[in-house]
């Protein structure tokens, strides 16, 4: 169990080689082994959504995904969402404008879920946004602002 295995991860368009134990989760690989701490650990049990990342374009919970499972697949984290020149993704800009966060700890997961929510076609109404964003907990209570941000970003992405 504790012998390390070489794996390579494709994260935000960059290839990373690392040696980890098979039991290392994608979340811990990102945070502890690669220094990509934008992806947050809120529960480590798939209950809060703070660790949401995209694997091959689908939103997944990095705490319930072994790093080895992501081998050879395209992983996108919050650090890889903005353009290379720093231009924010429409969802990031909308979160800032709508004040869709306070402490900021659930925010990367919310944003990754929101990007996927829009891409999935589930941002058609406020109620639909609420439902498809319900897997990402926010204890500061930014929910109405998150709905407003997703609504705004969905319109911008569509236009």
């Amino acid at each position: 169990m504790t012998s390390k295995t070489p794996i390579h991860l494709d994260i935000n368009g960059h290839r990373h080689e690392l040696e980890v134990e098979p039991r290392v989760t994608l979340l811990d690989a990102l945070r502890d082994h690669l220094g990509l701490t934008g992806t947050k650990k809120g529960c480590d049990h798939g209950q809060c959504g703070a660790c949401t990342v995209h694997v091959d374009g689908q939103r997944v919970l990095a705490c319930l995904t072994l790093a080895a499972q992501a081998e050879g697949r395209a992983v996108t984290t919050i650090e890889g969402l903005a353009e290379g020149d720093g231009t924010l993704h429409a969802v990031q800009a909308a979160f800032l404008e709508q004040d869709a966060f306070q402490c900021g700890y659930c925010t990367p997961g919310q944003i990754m879920s929101a990007v996927a929510c829009i891409r999935e076609g589930h941002a058609g109404s406020d109620d639909e946004i609420r439902e498809y964003m319900a897997g990402n907990l926010c204890r500061c209570g930014a929910y109405p602002h998150i709905v407003a941000a997703v609504r705004q970003a969905a319109l911008e992405v569509a236009s």
Binding site: T37, G38, T39, E79, L88, F95, L96, G104, T107
Partner: peptide, 14 residues
């Protein structure tokens, strides 16, 4: 808008 916002929405806030 909150001035610490950009750090929080890009994952840069440690």
């Amino acid at each position: 808008s909150r001035v610490d916002g950009p750090a929080k929405i890009t994952g840069a806030a440690k």
